[in-house]
Structures are given as C-alpha cells and as structure tokens.
C-alpha cells in the first residue's frame, strides 16, 4: 500500500466507491418493466371440451406458412450420434406435438361422480410467467414478449433443443434440415429449428384472438390479464368443485386449466412421452436464477466492503505505530 495515502484521501475515495456501488445496485432494480399479473392468460374449462379438434385444425391452418420446409438431403451430422429429427414425412400427425402440429388434444378416461367419463385436454405451450426456454436459450432465439407470451424466432434458432430440455413439459419440437445452422457449420453445430405454439402473436398484435380460441364451438377457452383469469379460474373451480393447473406450476404459467377431476388422476390417465406433455406438478425451474440473481448483484459490494475494511484497519494500525 502506498504510505503517502492520507486518511482524508482514503475517506474521499471510500465515499466515491460506496456511491458507485449504490448506483450499480440501484440501476438493475429500475430495469423491471413488465407486470406478470397483467400477462395475457388463457383459461381452459375442461368440463366444456368435447375433443372435436376444431382448435387443432384452426392452429394448423393459421400456421401453415410458419411450419418448416426442410432441405434434403440433411447434412451429415458429426458426431454420428446426433439425432436427425424429421417430421416432414408425417406432417398430418395430430396425436402429439410436432414442428407441424403445435396443439394436440389428450384424452383421459376417468371416473367422475361414479360414472366413467372421457375428458379432453388441449395441450400446447403453457407460456410460463418466467419461461426457462426463453431465459436459457444461449442465442436469444426464444423470446418473451411484453404481454408474457413466449415464442421462438425460426430465423435465429439453431435447433440445439436446450429449450426442450429446459421446459418441464418438453414442449418445443425440432425439425432437422431447416434454419440458420445450414449456413454456418451444418455438420458440426446446430440441428434445425425448434417449433412450438406462439399464441398467434401476429393475430394478437392485430387485435384478434389466437385462432384456437375463436375456432372453439364450445367456448372452452377465454383470454385476459392473468390476475382476472386467475380470479375467473378460482370462481369456476369453486362452482364445479374442481381443480386448477397452472397457478404455481413452474412458478406459474399463463395457461390455466380448470377440471372437475384432480390433475394427478388426469396425469395418470393420459398418454405421456415425446410430444405428449404430462400434467404433473412442476417446481419453478427458474427459482435459483430468481433468488440467487438478486443476491449476485450484491456480490461486488461485499468485495468492496471487505477490501475497504482491510485497508482501513491497515491505516489505523499504521497511524498508531507512527510517533
């Protein structure tokens, strides 16, 4: 340490350092811009769904121009164990989620009030409040809009499928042989593009509802700000003595289901697997990033305080020794 540093200089610089630390901490706090209670949320009343599939058809029609048009032959993948995922030969598949089918209907045969009954559950992206697919995408190809919906930018996605691994329901589906990776290192990096429901973001921007909502003849879905939809879901659940899915799953989603049957029973009854998401409870996969993230921004202050404290003690010790 420089012996000519005076206590006055030390104090001046300490004040400047503390001010810098305070400003650095305050700036991120002002960056919050969106209110999750206002995120656009859809509510499914499962007691109304008859499984007619009109929503699936409407979804496919409206996204006809958004689905992949892969180039053949596909690049030779290196290493060879990298899987080719090709749904282009089976584009009509509706029994599961695929790059060509962003909405599917699951069936659950369960007993309701002593009677065997089949419930139909339309499934697509849950549009999480804090979506891990968006937050963990290494390129910013998955985005969340101001109204809370999440979507994948097919012009930027490299098809690494991290979003599918990060999603508790493994919703996004990959098509090989399409997208940006073909122009970079097609054999060595990337593997296509990921596809999922984008909640008809273009229709929403034009002031229209998502196509699946308008196409439903039974009025299964309603849409509105999350706070209002949660209120509506709770009232509906009370009315039918039912249950809600999506309130807390993965930290809360902007898709809510209300069912007369507990969701753990529906989860047991539905087909699950690739492209067929479960209805299990899921803890908030972004909890660590939400909790540790705030603390992380305070780490520099701890380092500054420790260093300043050490120097202060050294100076104090030196001044005592000076006659």
């Amino acid at each position: 340490m420089n012996p000519i540093l005076s206590r006055r200089t030390f104090l001046k610089r300490s004040v400047l350092t503390a001010t810098t630390a305070a400003v650095a901490t305050a700036l991120p706090a002002n960056a919050e811009a969106a209110d999750p209670s206002g995120y656009l949320t859809t509510l499914f009343d499962l007691s109304r769904c008859v499984g007619c599939g009109e929503c699936v058809t409407a979804c496919r029609e409206i996204h006809e121009g958004d689905v992949p048009q892969p180039k053949r032959p596909f690049p030779t993948m290196i290493p060879a164990r990298v899987p080719v995922e090709d749904f282009s030969q089976n584009q009509e598949e509706e029994e599961r989620l695929t790059p060509y089918n962003w909405l599917t209907i699951q069936e659950a045969s369960v007993e309701v009030n002593g009677e065997e009954q089949t419930l139909y559950i339309p499934r697509r992206c849950m549009h999480c409040i804090n979506p891990p697919c968006v937050k963990l995408c290494p390129w910013g190809a998955a985005v969340q809009e101001k109204n809370g919906l999440s979507r994948i930018n097919d012009a930027l996605c490299l098809g690494g499928a991290k979003c599918r691994a990060a999603c508790p329901w493994h919703i996004p589906q990959r098509q090989t042989g399409v997208g940006l990776y073909l122009d970079i290192l097609p054999s060595l990096a990337g593997n296509g593009v990921m596809y999922k429901c984008d909640r008809c973001h273009n229709r929403l921007k034009a002031g229209e509802n998502p196509a699946c909502i308008d196409a439903c003849p039974e009025g299964v879905q309603s849409i509105g700000p999350r706070e209002a939809m949660v209120k509506k879901a709770k009232a509906l659940a009370t009315e039918m003595n039912g249950y809600i899915y999506g309130l807390d799953e993965n930290g809360g989603t902007t898709t809510l289901y209300v069912s007369p049957v507990p969701f753990h029973r529906l989860n047991e009854a539905i087909d699950k697997g690739p492209g067929c998401p479960d209805l299990a409870p899921h803890k908030n996969s972004m909890a660590m990033a939400e909790n540790v993230g705030k603390a992380l921004l305070l780490a520099p202050i701890a380092g500054m305080a420790a260093a300043a404290g050490r120097i202060f003690l050294t100076l104090k010790h030196a001044s005592k020794e000076t006659p």
């Binding site: 811009a33 969106a34 804090n130 937050k135």
Partner: peptide, 19 residues
C-alpha cells in the same frame, strides 16, 4: 442476470446482442 428475473422484458435483438 436481470433478464432471468421474473417480469423482465428486454427487446429480442438486445438479448441476442448481449449474449
């Protein structure tokens, strides 16, 4: 880190640039 918090909006191109 801020982007990963709940209720944060950042423009898509901005996120790609930051990444």
């Amino acid at each position: 880190v801020i982007k990963n918090l709940k209720g944060i909006y950042m423009p898509p191109h901005g996120i790609t640039l930051i990444d």
